[in-house]
Design a protein around this nucleic acid. Structure first.
Lengths: 329, 329
DNA sequence: ATGAAAGCGCTAACAG
DNA sequence: CTGTTAGCGCTTTCAT
């Protein structure tokens, strides 16, 4: 792929000034006479000149592109959360006039992120070495949606454990004791923590854990279906299910209804995400809302500070919120 | 944002060769002795050297980043389609080792896309001048999801009119004549063409158009709700509704059921998109599938050819497919 | 306020 | 096969 022509020199010639002056007006330096500024601006307009970001970045040693790395891991990538993240960060980047380099990485390679002034890692799945590389290089970096304990890196995550606990406790408060959990892919931290939250909630209420009630999935609807069928087929089926994502909860609900059972009359369902589609199923799903957009924004802001020289890192856990709708009883 | 140090010179020194040789191994030129290649590779590893993409792009006049411009227009951007596009193109870029620059543009400004070797415009809403600029600059460009007649540019769009026609004809074949249409935002070409397809289908079957049966929305669920309520409140309400998107169809269905009517017994609903969530509502929605991923892939491939020197442009219309499920009768 | 000149890190002829 | 030498287009001292 080739890039274009019109360069600063032509502009300088047309305007009758030095390229330095042109550079100054491009960079909005104050030390340019009104007359010259006007001439340069006109020349730029006439030539439809757009400075080469590459040259600018190379010469200045600065750049304003932020890379967003999202593991191209099916279960995660194809989730509601990925889009929200891209939306949140993408929109904010547009507003801040930052370029967004989106990497949907398959993981392995230490890809080329030198072109970015800062990096946001969304989840760390199969790409921890990338993260370590970035840190070693001293590139401003923040991790979102994953709490990284053992590395000197800023991270903004969601309180998955807390949210899961709250969900399960809510179920308990409704009188349930036979509570199952359809877990997400434990390759993701979120899934692990939600499972942990589930277990802790039970433990704190003296409800003994039933291994049969815990089914691990890859977050896909297909596995959610299987999991639900398995749960329903138990000799002693649960009366409530805490599902690790709304889209799986939707599927679970569908399965339950296909079997002629009702939600929430026969079985209560509680999801996680507050995916808008959880509103439009046959029964509005009670769920745990996670502040995704906020996480995206906070992440970008943190990155911004870091690139501006801030040194202290910050590890944040964002609270979730239980959204009670109609799927629990 | 600052970028880093370790450069090709250090590598050359460590390896005891010239920077040219280093450059050669970086670029996988064949003309390097095994011995030197090995030395250089080791030096690179030792130094954890990563070449600066900026310098590479500047020096070579080439670059392998493609910009994807998506208008940050609510109705569209917050649709199923936007994500599918990002996924499709993002994933393919990763595979092809291309960098993806994502611009969620608010429209107006001629932003800086010189950093891209090629540009993909998804929809042209409020940013036609950007497109024209790119064309003028001679930057390889392709437009997807919008058929651009009057510009010399390759485009890959979906046959919205055909899909809409097919949907409405299907309704007609089921015996419906009182068919309403909840249209999308006519700021988007897709919405306009779907409306047109609806009108043509009626006309071709000699069904006279009832203006009351056509309600325009911004693609949002809120307006879909209002539209549905309006339609249901008519003295002579429709027996079938063709909704311009699945997410709106979901909402329409919810409204209908809230009013105690049934789908499809009382009213038939047909959507558009084949959004996966159309499967999980109370009734699986009959819809028109649009090959989004294919469109994304074709678009990127076309762009790739263009950057490789291909001159002829190509305007493609991708066919849709009617997916019959349970919401029509 | 302005310009000359020296790079930024790399690639690309061009010799050898 | 390898090194030398120019730049790529811009920013940035440093003079003036």
């Amino acid at each position: 792929m080739e890039t274009k022509k019109t360069n600063i020199t032509e502009v300088a010639e047309l305007a009758g000034v030095s390229i330095t002056t042109v550079s100054r007006v491009i960079n909005k330096a104050t030390s340019v006479s009104e007359a010259n500024r006007r001439k340069v601006e006109e020349a730029i307009r006439k030539l439809k000149f757009v400075p080469s970001p590459y040259a600018q970045a190379l010469a200045s040693g600065k750049n304003n592109t932020v890379a967003l790395i999202i593991p191209r891991y099916e279960g995660l990538f194809y989730s509601y959360y990925a889009l929200e993240l891209i939306r949140g960060i993408g929109t904010l980047c547009d507003v801040l006039k930052l370029d967004l380099l989106l990497h949907l990485t398959a993981g392995r390679d230490i890809f080329n992120c030198k072109s970015a002034g800062g990096i946001i890692f969304a989840d760390i799945i199969g790409n921890r070495s990338q993260l370590e590389w970035a840190l070693r290089e001293g590139i401003p970096t923040v991790v979102i949606n994953s709490f990284v304990d053992d590395l000197e890196v800023s991270c903004i995550a969601i309180d998955n454990m807390g949210g899961a606990k709250e969900a399960v406790k809510y179920l308990i408060s409704l009188g349930h004791t036979k509570i199952a959990h359809i877990a997400g892919d434990t390759i993701s931290q979120a899934a692990v923590l939600r499972l942990e939250g589930y277990e802790k909630a039970l433990a704190e209420h003296g409800i003994s854990e039933n291994q049969e009630y815990i089914v691990k999935t890859d977050y896909s609807r297909g596995q959610a279906r299987q999991a639900t069928e398995k749960l329903l087929g138990l000799k002693d089926p649960p009366t409530a299910i805490f599902v690790a994502s709304d889209s799986m909860a939707l599927e679970a609900m569908a399965v339950i209804m296909e079997k002629g059972r009702k939600v929430p009359q026969d079985i209560s369902i509680i999801g996680f995400d507050d995916n808008p589609s959880s509103l439009y199923g046959p029964v509005a799903i009670t769920t745990v809302r996670q502040p995704l957009i906020k996480m995206a924004e906070e992440g970008l802001k943190e990155l911004y500070s870091l690139t501006k020289g801030k040194k202290e890192i910050r590890k944040t856990l964002l609270p979730t919120e239980l959204i009670i709708r109609d799927s629990c009883k």
